[in-house]
Simulated assay, not measured.
Amino acid sequence: MTEKQEVADAGWRDYGEPQLPAPLAAALAAFAEQGYHGTSVRDIAARANLSVPGLYHHYPSKQSLLQGLLEMTMTDLLARSERAVAAAGNAPVERFGAVVECLLRFHMYRREQAFIGSTEIRSLDDSYRAAYIAHRDRQQRMVDEIIEAGMAEGDFTTAYPKDAGRAVTTMCVSVSTWYKPSGPLDADELVKRYLQIARDAVGYRGA
Rank of each mutant, 00 (worst) to 15 (best):
R13Q: 09
M171W: 03
L104P: 01
R122I: 04
R111A: 11
C172N: 11
F96I: 03
D76Q: 10
E145L: 14
A164V: 04
R136E: 12
Y36M: 09
A86E: 06
A207Y: 10
Q19V: 10
D126K: 06
V173W: 05
W12I: 01
F115D: 13
I116F: 00
T170Y: 08
H37E: 15
Y179R: 02
K4W: 08
K4F: 09
Y132I: 12
P21L: 06
D125M: 07
A25P: 08
H58W: 05
T169L: 14
G16A: 11
S127Y: 04
Y160N: 15
L20P: 10
F31E: 13
T157K: 09
Y109L: 10
A8G: 02
P60C: 00
D144E: 15
Q63A: 12
P53N: 01
A131D: 14
T2K: 05
R138H: 11
P92C: 13
V175R: 06
R122D: 13
C102G: 05
G150I: 02
G154L: 02
P161I: 14
D188Y: 04
D188L: 09
M72I: 08
D200G: 05
E3Y: 00
G16N: 07
P60S: 04
A46V: 05
E17T: 10
E148T: 09
F96Q: 01
D14P: 00
M74V: 04
Q139P: 02
L103C: 11
I116R: 02
Q139G: 12
V85T: 10
I147F: 10
E94S: 14
R141F: 07
W178Y: 14
P92I: 13
E101C: 02
V202L: 11
I147Q: 08
Y36D: 09
E112W: 06
L65I: 07
Y194M: 15
L124M: 04
R95S: 04
T158R: 04
A187Q: 09
L24Y: 00
T169Q: 12
R199V: 06
P92L: 14
T75E: 13
G97M: 06
V99L: 10
T2I: 02
G68H: 00
